[in-house]
């Protein structure tokens, strides 16, 4: 029996522009509390814009976003893992401060974090294998370590939903499996929405797939057919997981 699920985020007929150009049109999407959605689409197809709209960072031109039925994004707690190039990793900040920053909120702007928060951070970092890095500046970390630090920051507040924007920009393909295993476990506690241009890796782990290229097509399964790829002008790299992983390249003429 499934637990009762709740609608966390509802996008209703969203049209959004980025740099004065409309990149999303008439997009509808409903995210429920146990979802594990992979969002795929070509570069420039509006994936990141969609994430910004969901996070409340970008006001859509038209349409409404509701968080548990309310237009205020503060109604739900969102954990966010940005793309690696969004991060100034030469910034003078330690791993410890970075992870704890996931706990700050408008209600607690000043003062030290209470002891229980600090314990929580220490436990979570140990769990994700970065317990020994506390005092390191983020600039001295490898891509994989950086990814885990920002994952810690994103989930330390026990958010209702975890949103990952191209997490595969941090590491090589071979390390990605680890992340997806972690996410699978996290999905017991929170909804997950992951944006990626790597179709194959995603479809092996996510429950459902949404395909965004100006419009959004939502498949209530994690299987993408050749026809769907063609119809929606989706990414061209497709990795299947058989005994020997192989890549099927499919050419578009758009």
């Amino acid at each position: 029996m499934e637990h009762a699920t709740q609608i966390l985020i509802a996008l209703n007929k969203i049209t959004a522009a980025y740099n004065g150009k409309v990149v999303l049109e008439n997009v509808n999407l409903t995210v429920r509390s146990n979802d594990f959605i992979g969002i795929i689409g070509p570069n420039g197809g509006g994936k990141t814009t969609l994430v910004k709209v969901i996070l409340g960072l970008l006001k859509p031109l038209r349409g409404k976003v509701h968080y548990k039925g309310d237009p205020d994004p503060g109604k739900i707690s969102i954990g966010y893992l940005p793309q690696i190039h969004k991060i100034d990793y030469k910034f003078p900040i330690t791993v410890w401060d970075t992870v704890l920053s996931g706990l700050i909120s408008d209600k607690r702007l000043v003062g030290n974090f209470p002891k229980e928060n600090q314990n929580k951070a220490a436990n979570l970092m140990a769990e994700l294998g970065i317990g020994t890095l506390s005092n390191k500046p983020v600039g001295e970390l490898s891509g994989g370590q950086l990814q885990r630090v920002f994952l810690c920051r994103a989930i330390i507040s026990n958010p209702d939903i975890l949103i990952l924007d191209e997490p595969n920009t941090y590491v090589d393909n071979k390390f990605e499996g680890e992340l997806y295993e972690t996410l699978r476990k996290l999905n017991d506690r929170m909804a997950i929405l992951i944006v990626s241009h790597d179709v194959g890796m995603i479809s092996a782990y996510v429950k459902t797939i949404a395909c965004v290229n100006r419009e959004l097509h939502y498949h209530e399964s994690n299987i993408i057919s050749q026809e769907q790829l063609l119809a929606y002008n989706c990414p061209i790299q497709l990795i299947t997981h058989g005994d020997v992983p192989h890549t099927v390249l499919h050419k578009h003429e758009h």
Binding site: P73, S101, R153
Partner: peptide, 15 residues
Amino acid sequence: LYITFDPEFAKTRNL
């Protein structure tokens, strides 16, 4: 510190 390091993340925390 947090707003300067990562303003977008800070916004998602409603700062």
